[in-house]
Design a protein around this nucleic acid. Structure first.
Lengths: 233, 233
DNA sequence: GCGACATAGTGAGACGCCTCACAGTTCGGC
DNA sequence: GCCGAACTGTGAGGCGTCTCACTATGTCGC
């Protein structure tokens, strides 16, 4: 790995405890306990497009995002792929395989250069026993995840392209007028789970209707309420 | 409610602790703790087709199945519905809404007459704090659930009718030669998420090929390996 | 035994989305 | 400023699935 510009990235001796405390999972924990856990955590850097783990791997650890963005995808035997989830600063991921000891359910790749904290199973499980408030917090996080995934199943079963695209755009743009997302239409097609061509055609329609504006790798939602309407119908 | 035949069903004073101990979640717990928890648990009976909870309800409690079967479904605004999950003796359900305090994500109905144990949020959360091994067990269960739901997303994105139907049949019939499932084709269509007519046509094909036999509300898989082959392609 | 109802089977037409093919546009590197 | 690569836009044809409409076959209550 070449040296990076930011000095923090070269020194694994940054204050891990402080980073941990920023995370949802450890927020209600006292300083001492945080430092204790931090002692077990490893800092790991990944370059843009690097593979963090692959579907089918044995999953020994859980990750927390310190900086950057991570994409979790899955792919079929015929090479099609779809986005399952995206994580940013403050999120944790990789917990399923860690908790039930079975293989990874998806591929994780670095969407940008990023800095992650990893905690191994053998260190993490005892923490859960000693600090049940962390286990409870984790249960909440997992519930939210399950809720989101269930919603995704519903979307796939009941909604057509327009609805799913509308919903995805609202998520990506933040839902406020003028909110925008930076990605290519082919990236977008993978998130929605449809062909690039169809995505393009629908975007054209909305562009003509003044619902959004299109530019190269950028998409600005002008009237989110219209998308909302379409998504909930 | 009319009186039921089985005397146990009329007496809520059955040994709740013993029932609890049969459940995955409480298996590793000592007898005293079980009795403590059992004191909080309520026994609740539901008739076939009764609604246990509905999507959007506030979810204050978690259920454990003592006897019978429960179906969790979801439905779209246009009245279509799809099966999310099915639970039997020894399973627990309804934990998402309990854990994150948000509304129910699906409708739960009694598939048969059934007997459930319910634990309320205000009683359950303190138990998790005092007994972290239960929290960890619950984390495992939730991970498995998330894994299964993610798999469902993949199926919906990548597989066609044949594949999804094959997979569903394997699950329902147990996967062994001669395994059978008792449901109507229209019930089956809801589990697969496709129209009854298409399901019927594909079943005809397999029936002609000798992969399975069809009867009214009964379906016997003769050659599961053929279905396996189709499902994994 | 009869009528009502749930279940199963089948054809025809429509519709949504996919794939392929190709042209036009923008961007970055040299 | 030119070239190649990434991205965007668009038509045509095909395939899978849905819907509608209808018939056939049990099955249950009376």
């Amino acid at each position: 790995m070449t040296l990076l510009a930011n000095p923090e990235q070269r020194t694994p001796s940054v204050n891990k405890a402080a980073i941990l405390r920023q995370h949802e999972l450890f927020q209600e924990l006292d300083k001492d306990s945080c430092e204790q856990i931090a002692a077990y955590a490893k800092i790991r850097e990944f370059r843009r497009d690097a593979t963090i783990f692959s579907k089918g791997d044995d999953g020994f650890c859980l990750f927390a995002v310190v900086r950057g963005r991570v994409l979790v995808t899955t792919s079929s035997s015929e090479g099609k792929s779809a986005v399952l989830n995206q994580f940013e600063k403050g999120d944790i991921f990789g917990e399923i395989a860690l908790l039930d000891g079975r293989p990874r359910t998806g591929d994780a790749t670095a969407l940008t250069d990023c800095c992650l904290l990893s905690l191994e199973r053998r260190d993490f499980i005892p923490i859960l026993t000693k600090k049940p408030e962390i286990a409870i917090k984790l249960l909440e996080i997992l519930s939210g995840r399950l809720r989101r995934t269930t919603e995704q199943v519903e979307e796939l079963m009941f909604m057509d392209l327009r609805g799913r695209l509308a919903k995805t755009l609202l998520r990506l743009s933040g839902g406020a007028p003028g909110g925008s997302a930076e990605l290519s239409q082919s990236e977008l097609s993978h998130r929605v789970g449809m062909s690039r061509e169809m995505i393009n055609r629908q975007l054209q329609v909305w562009s003509r209707e003044g619902v959004l504006t299109l530019a190269r790798r950028r998409l600005t939602v002008l009237r989110p309420e219209r998308l909302e309407e379409i998504a909930t119908r």
